[in-house]
Design a protein around this nucleic acid. Sequence first.
DNA 1: GGTTAGCACTCAACCCCGGCGAGTGCTAAC
DNA 2: GTTAGCACTCGCCGGGGTTGAGTGCTAACC
Lengths: 339, 339
Amino acid sequence: MGMDERKFRILQAIIDDYILTAVPVGSRTISKKYDMGLSSATIRNEMSDLEELGYLDQPHVSAGRIPSAKAYRLYVDQLLHQGLLHSDSESAIRAHFLGRMRQMEDVIDHAAQVLSNLTNYTAVVLPPSGPQPRIRTLQLVPVSSNAALVVIVTDSGIVRDAVIRVSEQLDSDTLYAISKSLTKELSGCTLKEAVELLPQITGRMQDNEKLLQGLNSFFQENAGSSHAHVAIGGRSNILNYPEYSDTEKARSFLSLMETRDKLASIIAQQGEMAFTVRIGPETGVPEMADCSIVTATYSTGNGQQGTIGVIGPTRMQYNRVLSILGTMGHQLSELFSDD
Amino acid sequence: MGMDERKFRILQAIIDDYILTAVPVGSRTISKKYDMGLSSATIRNEMSDLEELGYLDQPHVSAGRIPSAKAYRLYVDQLLHQGLLHSDSESAIRAHFLGRMRQMEDVIDHAAQVLSNLTNYTAVVLPPSGPQPRIRTLQLVPVSSNAALVVIVTDSGIVRDAVIRVSEQLDSDTLYAISKSLTKELSGCTLKEAVELLPQITGRMQDNEKLLQGLNSFFQENAGSSHAHVAIGGRSNILNYPEYSDTEKARSFLSLMETRDKLASIIAQQGEMAFTVRIGPETGVPEMADCSIVTATYSTGNGQQGTIGVIGPTRMQYNRVLSILGTMGHQLSELFSDD
DNA sequence: GGTTAGCACTCAACCCCGGCGAGTGCTAAC
DNA sequence: GTTAGCACTCGCCGGGGTTGAGTGCTAACC
């Protein structure tokens, strides 16, 4: 008993129907709604086979069947293979990005918002991260008599800043002079390298103990955290789906959505492919046992990569989501390339 | 029939019990659990009176009573009046702020997190906003050949930045010179005033068309948005309470929690008092018909004010929340004053 | 006159049960 | 290989009885 063409078509119909209705689908439904030229009895036989093959589950004997994770897997692989992702939503997405975005975080936030609105699922957007951002410019701006703002601009145009304490008698010009020499020394370094280089520089600069100490911890703090900012949109969208009408399930899902770090590390597991689809157990997260995660990447001009993702019930509108993610990925890549 | 001492004590007991259990409380419970030296029958008579006075509601005839909004109001006013808010949580909160906070947004985020953890309700923290922040320093940092980062530091130490386009042949030194002259011109101005002053300066600076245009829109964008950043913690905490086990209610609440702007404007309605408590209908927000909002203020060294708030069911542990908010307010004020 | 014991009454919550209907598996005929 | 027919299964739904918490009222008590 193999998986022939007809079985596949029937399976597809079942999945389509279940995605739409969230109700176990019976043989009669298939034979009537999707005209395959087959009677319900025949469908029944095929469904029985499909169940044996592991593509369908039966909640109980007198209910219809629901697709298993394996079925979704097949379905999605098919989608990805055919590549028939009509990007109808292109214009909708483009329209959303007409307004000028001030800064990366705004773009990220906005993208997550748009993504969740378009899909009606939860959307997550990770900022670009790459080999290691390199320092391009470093500048100190006076804030008060004994504090300064240190701003670094990296090669990817990302800006990081923090307020650090400095010794008292540093005026604007002195700070600028220091900034220039530091920029000269550190330009082209990654943040990690900068941490190592600092002690050498300390030797040559006398009394600015405090300043260098501040810089040091600033570099260290930023060297690690690549997932600094994660944008999440439509957190509560999951409640639209009957799968999560159980309060307890909803709660554990939603509290996961509140821990940015964990969420980021889940989403960040993105392979080499244009799209990654993880279905149910494949997510490896117990709270998401009946969720699917679809992710895609976008890239910036200088080879950094970011990830965008959508989280929804396993019964997800995969083709729609894939198409929207694809378009959004393009838009973001474009936006970041001519920046 | 007035509101005598005994009625008040009974009402208090009812509220206490209901806050604890969320179950309509009957006369027998009161006479047994809280020994008032009265039989259930007497309590019953008093409860009947209290209902007539509008302090109690009865879901149906054979259930116990639940406190009305009016009852909570009385209860809270009593609390505030007596001022017996023992701040036991002081040390817990202080411990949370030991680590150095890099920047305001971090503090805000962290405060919301701590607040929601301690109270088990949803917490909202608004950044300080005041009369109008005044520019202290303005600095331009080169980002790429045709873009610069403009950083302004205001008198409250708040930093705003944005990337703007500049004409091509501006190197670091030129930008610094421009920064210095702009700082001289604009120092002490509010952002609004800066918008008006800019055209005059334009006259004196020749070809930097692009730059000034960028600055202009940057000022304008920032002049309005006082609620730039709102920190929210424990969004899904509301699901811990049976009041919100109804999915539909939970959904409308949670989606309100996702619209930062709306939430900010709700929270921001904080009076002159140290604390503001809005109970149920008093919130004026239909989605929060059976929520209460408790807010408090903190202040920065230079007279700016921020708001912290907690949102929970009307059946809220008001004394606990008030005490925690009070302590947190102090901590934040301290943190921002010696900055 | 306030307090209390007693009692009848109410009503949501719970459980049990039978009917309904969607859906299946099997068999026999085409 | 396909299909019609039929017996069977089982979750869902609605009705009816039971339970128990809680009330309001009345009469007796201090």
